[in-house]
Structures are given as structure tokens and as C-alpha cells.
Amino acid sequence: MASILDSVNQRTQMVGQNRLELLMFHLNGKQRFGINVFKVREVLPCPKLTAMPNRNPLVRGIAHIRGQAISIIDLSMATGGRALTDIQNRFVIIAEYNRTIQGFLVEGVDRIININWEDVMPPPKGTGRDAYLTAVTKVEDELIEIIDVERILADIMPANMDVSEEVANAPINVAKEDLTILITDDSSVARNQIKRALQSLGITLEVKKNGKEALDYLKDKAKEVGGLVHPHVPVLVSDVEMPVMDGYTLTAELKADPDLRDIHVILHTSLSGVFNQAMVKKVGADDFIAKFHPDELATAVQKWLNTEVIA
């Protein structure tokens, strides 16, 4: 089953083309779900699990895989469904999110699809299922649900969202009242985490849910100010995975626009594999930070704000 994943080098060719690959899988029932292949290390039959005392009920146990103890999360339970049964005949998706390795227990794994982010939409509201979805797409007239893994992990392992006093009090040598920091992320959990961390800087925050919304906002700002935007919006903190337009494509669009190219782009993403620096260089981003460490994020924003003064 691990052979379902091809080489990283082939996948990096999609960077800046607004495309993604989804590994599709089943939980309980016929509904198919998706997870970005970039986050998947391997897929394997469920190994023997060791129960741990006082564990979160969504964690079915600990597996020892390649010398590492990995928590195995029942993805069906985590999304409000019933627990998976007969787990010795199920599969585990080993994935890397937010600097940690997790295993997601699923009923079965289907195949990998290659699609355009323009065909990925925010989840429909009012369905009762949108709480744990970050996006949906259609494949062969079937709705594929893309799970908001960051929300699930926040429920199991809540992240610290507070910036340390030392970082919060670090000097920023700009007139804060004249600036806006733009935040772009499709996960409501991630948006709240970023806002909580950056509010300590005392600068106005503008929040968008995908790259298209962010690009439209910046182009409108260019018309409003009649030219260069970076004196007004000097920093963009952007997720990579977003419906409609991803963070790589957003960055490439900014760097190709004379009015927007000087905005400092920080890609802030749960993708934390070894290939990310090559991606950042390819699209021209200024910085890359793996989620989620509030001090690192706030420090990076401070650095680029102060660069404006030096420049």
C-alpha cells in the first residue's frame, strides 16, 4: 500500500500551478474523504496497538512504527461518526502535521487523484458536517470531503496560542496605526490561532479564507492607494492548502504584480516535509514557518516589519 505514494520530486512540479493531489479513503460507509498527499508519509495495514492510560478517547492506541511511538487517531470518531471496528483489518495513514507525526485509522484507502484547487470549494453551510470539513470537491459526480485535520488535532492536543512576553514586547520600528497584516487560511482553527498570536503586536489584522479572497483584497487596495501596497500591507501570512487558490499560487501572483511584489510573504503551513524550502524558493516567498509556534510566527512578522524601516 505504501507504493501508492510516488516520489516527492514529481509532486513538487505542481507547485505554483494551483494543483493538489488527494489520497482518498473511506471511514464508516460509502462516503469518500481526502487528505493532501504532501502530508502523507506512508499507508500501511493497522499494526498492533497498545492502549495507554488516560488517553484521549479518539486515540485508539499507540503503534510502534520504524522505531517511533505514534498515536493512532480514529478518524471516524474524530469526525463525529462511530468507532471503526475490526481494526486489525483496517489501514493507518501516517501523516505529518504541525511538526508532529500522527496515524489516522481509516476503514480503507482508495486512490490518489490530481485536481485543480479551483475545483475545491468551502464546505456547504448548515449540513451539520461542515464543523470538521475544510473543503469539498467533486470526482466523477461524487462529493469528496476534505477533513480539517487541524481542528481535530486542536481538540486532541490543543496548541499554545499565546506569544511570550519577551516577544510581544520586542520593538517594532514602524507606525503601527498605519499598517495592516493580512492573514489567509481556510481553517477556522488556524485563523483563530494566528489572530491570537499576532494581536499581541497591536497592528490591524485583516483575515481571508483563501488565496483568491486575499488577492482580490490586495488588488482592491492597490486601486485605493494608487500604486504600491506594501507601505500599507507589508506582510501576508498565508496557509498553503486552500480552496479556489492555494498559497503557492497566491505568492506567485503577488510576486508577478508590480504593485504587490514587495509585500513580504510568510507561508505558514502544517506541511512540514523536507521539500518545502524548494517550494518556497520556486514561488518567491520570503519565509516559511511550520505550524504552530506563536513566538516564531510573531518574531517573523516583526522581522519583516522592521525590514521595511531598514529598506
Rank of each mutant, 00 (worst) to 15 (best):
K281F: 09
I172D: 05
V106W: 02
A78S: 15
V280M: 05
V136C: 04
N276Y: 13
E296D: 09
T180S: 08
V274E: 11
I4R: 12
G67Q: 07
N18K: 01
P158M: 08
H232I: 14
T100H: 11
F104T: 13
S71Y: 09
G247R: 01
V174M: 03
V280S: 02
D130S: 10
E213A: 15
D6F: 12
P123Y: 00
R41F: 09
L75Y: 04
T251L: 04
H293A: 13
I263T: 02
L75D: 08
A298C: 10
D262K: 07
K195R: 08
I147R: 01
D86E: 13
L27Q: 05
I194M: 06
Q102E: 14
R19Y: 15
T180P: 06
M77F: 11
I94E: 11
V301W: 00
I147C: 04
V309D: 13
I87G: 11
T180I: 10
M245K: 00
V309P: 14
I94Y: 09
V37W: 09
V40W: 11
F275S: 13
I147S: 05
I144N: 00
A175N: 10
R82T: 15
P123W: 00
E224L: 08
Y132R: 09
M77Y: 10
G247F: 12
T204P: 06
Q193L: 05
A83G: 14
A131R: 12
L201W: 00
K223R: 10
Q277E: 07
L75H: 02
P294F: 08
D295W: 00
E142Q: 10
N98T: 10
L250I: 04
I266Q: 01
G226Q: 03
K209V: 12
V167H: 02
F38G: 08
L254T: 04
I263P: 01
P234R: 02
R111K: 03
I115G: 01
G80E: 04
I266E: 00
S188M: 04
A222D: 04
T79M: 07
M161N: 12
F288Q: 02
I181E: 01
I181A: 14
K303Q: 06
D155P: 13
A154R: 03
F38N: 15
N169S: 14
I144Y: 02
T180M: 09
D178P: 07
L228D: 10
S76G: 09
T85M: 13
G126D: 02
I172Y: 02
A168T: 09
A290R: 00
P234C: 05
Q88G: 14
S238L: 01
E165M: 15
D259Y: 12
N36Q: 07
G273S: 14
A222S: 11
Q31K: 12
I194E: 11
M14Y: 15
K209T: 09
R151L: 06
I62T: 03
K30A: 06
W117M: 12
P234K: 10
F91T: 14
A154T: 13
A170V: 11
S238Y: 03
A300R: 15
G227P: 05
K39R: 10
S3K: 15
K30T: 06
L182S: 01
L84P: 06
D246P: 04
V283T: 07
L236V: 06
E253R: 04
G273D: 11
D185L: 01
